[in-house]
Amino acid sequence: MNRAAIIDAGLFAALVAVALVAQAAGEPFVITLATKAAIFALAGVGLNLVLGYGGLVSFGHAAFFGIGGYVAGILASHAMSGAPVATFPFTMQGTNEMLAIWPMAMAVAGLVALAIGALSLRTSGVYFIMVTLAFAQMLYYFAISWPAYGGEDGLSFYVRNTFPGLNTFDPIQFFAIVAVLLGLALGLSALIVRSRFGLALRAARAAPGRAVAVGIRPFGIRLTAFVISGMITGLAGALYADLNRFVSPAMLSWHMSGEIMVFVILGGVGRLAGPLAGAGAYILLEHLLGGVSEYWQALLGLLLLVIVLFAPGGIVGMLNGGRGR
């Protein structure tokens, strides 16, 4: 194993260790925090694929996060009320089975990512940043003013969805589900990056002209990456909905997009476990600084500034001794 792989494995092990220690010490809230970090990390893993490896700065990933959340929330609330989700073109019932909700959330997020990506990828640079933001804002305002599922108030479904053989309401068991999914996503991400597809994606970023010359069509490659990225972030959204038993338009807001981006950059752009390190550190800071002062967000801001100015490789970059990717 090389040094980068050891760091990745170490970070994942640290997350699991935190949850296990908290379980042994009888601190269920720490497990909840670890779960939250794992879910945000998963959302970041999705973004990192396009941002870190593809060089595409999407400022609208909250769209996929929120859509995943709303798919979970809508299906669960229909399962609770018994009313079908749709009767046309075919009758579709709600469900509270995570195993049914996840593919659905990923499919819907993927379809939306396909539409947004197909339009946004015609632009580049700052314009890409802003057009992805615009699409997310459209969905945000739609969710606020669409009354059927609570609008601005959001949608509560009170009981966590079920997973065969597990009690999802038990913090540690829910954490286990999230951690396994995060592990799978990290593994998938590693595979993608090393595959021919991943090489092409990185080539299209580093030297677009040369990539075209060797027969790579950047648009298709980037669009595929964008869709996969949206699906992973959508899955994270569905899990976040389950963590809170609640979804609201806040999951679609530009603040959320910004936060997901902060996880990735804080941890280290284009590094496998970057989002995990970033999300973990962010939640730890939020929790610790919140106890220091009412104005803790100012301290958080200063800390982020220091990191971005003096540690451009993020946390993983620091751990790696500033060595290349």
Binding site: E27, P28, F29, T32, P171, L243, F246, S248
Partner: peptide
């Protein structure tokens, strides 16, 4: 003023 944070705080106050 964030609903998700409120839910997590409620969990904390009830559980911990």
């Amino acid at each position: 003023q964030k609903p998700d944070v409120a839910v997590q705080l409620a969990d904390k106050m009830i559980q911990a």
